[in-house]
Amino acid sequence: MDSLVSTEWLAGELGAPDLKVVDASFHLPGDGRDARDEFSEAHIPGATFMDLAEIVDSDHPVPGMLPPDYKFASRMQALGIGDADRIIVYDNSPHHSGARAWWMLRSFGARRVAILDGGLPKWIAEGRAIESGQPPPARGHFTAQLDRTALADKDHVSAIAGSPAHELVDARGASRFAGEDPEPRPGVTPGHIPGSKNLPQGRLFNPDNSWKRGAALAAAFEEAGVDLAKPMVTTCGSGITAAVLLFGAHLLGKQDVKLYDGSWAEWGSDPATPKATGPQATGPNATGPNATGPNATGQS
Rank of each mutant, 00 (worst) to 15 (best):
L199E: 06
I87Q: 01
W102A: 03
L28C: 04
A249M: 07
P289K: 09
A286N: 03
A249N: 06
R75I: 06
K258F: 00
I240V: 13
E54Y: 12
L79F: 14
V21K: 04
L14T: 09
A165S: 11
F49H: 13
A165K: 10
A224C: 09
L79E: 11
L10D: 00
Q201E: 07
R213H: 15
S300G: 14
D181Q: 15
H156C: 08
L4Q: 12
V21D: 03
P194I: 08
A291L: 13
G202T: 08
W267D: 05
H96P: 13
W9P: 00
A276R: 03
P29T: 10
G140W: 02
I81M: 07
A84H: 13
T297I: 13
N198P: 01
A243W: 01
A286S: 10
M232R: 04
E131Y: 03
L228D: 05
I160A: 01
E8S: 12
G225C: 01
R33K: 08
G237Q: 08
Y70V: 15
A291N: 07
P274G: 00
P184N: 06
H250D: 15
W103M: 07
A218E: 04
A150T: 15
K254Q: 11
R185Q: 08
L204K: 00
A178Q: 10
L10P: 00
A144D: 05
W211E: 06
S196G: 12
R75G: 06
T287K: 10
S58E: 14
E38Q: 15
F39Y: 14
R33G: 02
Q280E: 05
D51S: 15
A84R: 12
R213C: 12
H166V: 03
D23F: 05
P137M: 13
G12P: 06
A171G: 13
L259Y: 01
M1P: 10
K154C: 14
A242T: 06
G278Q: 07
W123S: 01
D155K: 14
G283R: 07
T48I: 13
I81F: 04
K212L: 14
I44Q: 06
P68F: 04
P294W: 05
V113S: 03
I130W: 05
